[in-house]
Amino acid sequence: MDWSQWHDDYDLPDSNLARRLQAVRDQIRQALDACPPGPLRVVSVCAGQGRDLLGVLPEHPRREDVTARLVELDPRNAASARRAASAAGLRKVEVVVGDAALTGSYRGMVPADLVLMCGVFGNITDEDIERTVGHCAQLCAHGATLVWTRHRKAPDLAPRICEWLEARGFERQWLSDPGAGFGVGVHRFAGEPEPLEPSPGARMFTFVGYDELRRRRTG
């Protein structure tokens, strides 16, 4: 999979990716609106080109309050995100080329007020999704918003992801309709953050890719 080319579908106005992106941006905007006054931390796991956060932050009234770290393994996607942040004058947005699966990639930036886990759960095994959910308490501050995505194709795992999150102190705020053609979930962390594991940190997941996961199911 060419993960840089994969982003091209975001530019097709009626594509599922474009509609999912709009839903994610709406939830980011609402989360920032609801944050109390003062400095805010945002982290994005497998950030890609950063189109979600960087599509909201430049025009948002809280932009100067936000310090963000976007972690992305593909250097072309990271370069695109870096250019977008620079063009918007977002001096406190850091784009890191690195392994987003390691909790240590977020050292110094967590617990965060907004955590973006978009494009992750549809590309890793069910076991790794549950494992990653277990690590979210290391990433999220009390009261933080977690925005995550996962397709709603059969087998639809979104309800189970909600159960895993809610068993770990997250409260459901919103889940997109199963018929929307995409899946976006929003949870608020009502618990207390756990200490981040020592460097390099724990591995939350191994990125497999949607096509490979589908091949394994059907093969």
Rank of each mutant, 00 (worst) to 15 (best):
H135K: 03
G48I: 13
L146R: 07
D113H: 15
R83Y: 05
Q138T: 08
T218Y: 02
E130W: 01
R152W: 01
D11H: 07
L102K: 09
M204A: 13
Q173Y: 00
N16E: 04
R76Y: 00
R216C: 05
Y106W: 06
L139I: 09
R19E: 03
A68D: 03
D26S: 14
C118Q: 08
A87P: 03
G219K: 08
T149Q: 01
L175Y: 11
D99K: 12
R69N: 10
F121D: 03
F170E: 14
S4E: 07
F121T: 07
E59G: 15
L114N: 03
F182S: 05
G181I: 10
Q27W: 03
Q22S: 12
M109A: 15
T218L: 06
G179P: 11
D2K: 02
V184P: 15
E197M: 10
R91N: 14
S199M: 13
A23H: 03
L53N: 03
Q5N: 07
Q173H: 10
R91K: 14
V56A: 02
S15I: 00
A137W: 00
V97R: 12
E192H: 09
Q30R: 13
L12A: 13
R188C: 11
L213M: 13
D11W: 01
E130T: 04
C46R: 01
A18S: 15
W164H: 10
A167H: 06
A81H: 07
F182W: 08
P193D: 13
N77S: 14
Q30L: 11
L116K: 09
S199Y: 05
Y210M: 09
P193L: 10
C140E: 02
C118Y: 00
L40H: 07
P155H: 00
G134Y: 00
V115E: 04
W174H: 14
S86T: 11
A141Y: 01
E64R: 12
E72L: 13
T218A: 01
L157Y: 06
V96W: 04
A68K: 04
T125Y: 01
L70Y: 02
W148H: 02
R63V: 01
Y210R: 09
A144Q: 07
H7P: 00
I161M: 12
V133S: 08
R19H: 03
V186C: 08
V42P: 04
E192L: 12
R152P: 04
G108H: 09
V42N: 01
R41P: 00
G181V: 09
G219A: 10
T149G: 01
P111F: 06
Q30W: 05
E197D: 14
G191C: 15
L213K: 05
A81Y: 04
D177R: 11
E59V: 11
M204K: 09
E192D: 13
P200I: 08
V110H: 06
P200T: 10
G209E: 07
G104I: 07
Q27Y: 03
G55V: 04
A47N: 08
R131I: 07
R150S: 11
G219I: 02
A101W: 09
R41E: 00
E163D: 14
F205V: 15
V208A: 10
A31C: 04
E64M: 04
A31V: 00
V93A: 10
